[in-house]
């Protein structure tokens, strides 16, 4: 054995080499598609784009990394979301990039139109708050989809840097800041044998109405922990229905704030496009109670 190793190392007798060299089969010569821009995640397993731009459900981020890129690929997606409730509407648009199924970078802008309420408050009809959000998410452990024999969910942490453009109005209603950072930790698991996906997110935030009404307030100016959850039932490879819940702080004395709920249906006819429709209950917003209505979102990507 030593002699053989030595002779191989010295590159001598050809006979000994031939006996030891393995002739690769065609399958062994096969090479994977290693293009960096790829779409090899399984359908819908990257979630959709939540209201603030992160990959998730509609209202809350999930631990999954957005885009269809696998652990050796880069994926990306863009979205447009419209929420219509009786007295307001919200438009959101943004994009994200997922690197190596590990890091997600997202940008989003929200435009919250106060319609007639703006006039009633002396701001002017159709007065609009704009908020820009930069999001960062890092996967820490687990794999929500493939690790089906493990109890460990996929775990990620993230931050959302938010800046609102209506500082003077926000100050007048009692908000302490026009910008803030939300921090969150998410756990997501696909229970494939049950065709169910579950997500729990714990968010630390000072945001009023996710930041549209600024950050901190007269009633409370500290970070508080808020629980968010999503439960989805997979009906087929490209269709899921589910419900979400998002707890929110209640920092402003003059504008009571409620937790949010929705029931959704998400449809992905292919990896490049998905549509989400939801019925959302946003509770009280400023002076208008029972803000319930339609949430519609389209996402494109790879």
């Amino acid at each position: 054995m030593l002699a053989l190793t030595l002779s191989l190392a010295l590159g001598t007798p050809a006979q000994a080499q031939d006996a030891d060299v393995h002739e690769p089969s065609p399958a062994e010569r096969a090479r994977p598609d290693d293009s960096v821009a790829g779409s090899e995640k399984l359908l819908l397993t990257a979630g959709v784009s939540e209201l603030e731009g992160a990959a998730g459900g509609g209202l809350t981020p999930w631990a999954v990394i957005g885009g269809y890129g696998t652990r050796d690929q880069i994926g990306a997606s863009a979205f447009y979301t419209r929420v219509n409730v009786p007295d307001y509407h919200l438009d959101g648009a943004g994009a994200l990039i997922g690197f190596l199924d590990r890091i997600e970078f997202s940008v989003a802008q929200q435009r919250f139109d106060t319609e007639a309420v703006g006039a009633a408050l002396g701001l002017g009809r159709g007065f609009t708050f704009r908020q820009n959000i930069i999001g960062l998410k890092v996967k820490l452990a687990g794999d929500a989809v493939l690790e089906q024999d493990s109890w460990l969910p996929q775990l990620s942490v993230g931050a959302q840097f938010k800046k609102n453009d209506r500082g003077a109005v926000l100050e007048a209603i009692g908000a302490k800041d026009d910008h803030g950072i939300d921090f969150y930790a998410s756990a997501t698991k696909l229970y494939l044998a049950q065709s169910i996906l579950a997500n729990v997110t714990l968010r630390f935030t000072r945001a009023n109405q996710i930041g549209i009404l600024g950050f901190g307030g007269d009633r409370n100016d500290n970070y508080t922990a808020q629980l968010e959850g999503s439960l989805a039932w997979l009906l087929s490879r490209n269709l899921a229905i589910g419900a979400e819940y998002r707890m929110k702080p209640d920092n402003l004395g003059i504008a009571g704030e409620d937790d949010w709920f929705d029931a959704f249906i998400a449809w992905a006819p292919g990896k490049h496009v998905s549509l989400t429709l939801a019925y959302a209950d946003l509770g009280n917003i400023v002076i208008k109670d029972r803000q319930r209505g339609l949430y519609a979102s389209v996402q494109i990507g790879f």
Binding site: E28, P32, L42, D72, R237
Partner: peptide, 26 residues
């Protein structure tokens, strides 16, 4: 064999399509 996650998932997708073809419930 040189197999990456994309290749593994590709096989899963092909199996899903074959199972659909054979009317195996989701």
């Amino acid at each position: 064999l040189a197999i990456n996650e994309g290749g593994f998932n590709a096989l899963v997708e092909d199996l899903q399509l074959a199972m659909d073809m054979h009317k195996i419930p989701f």
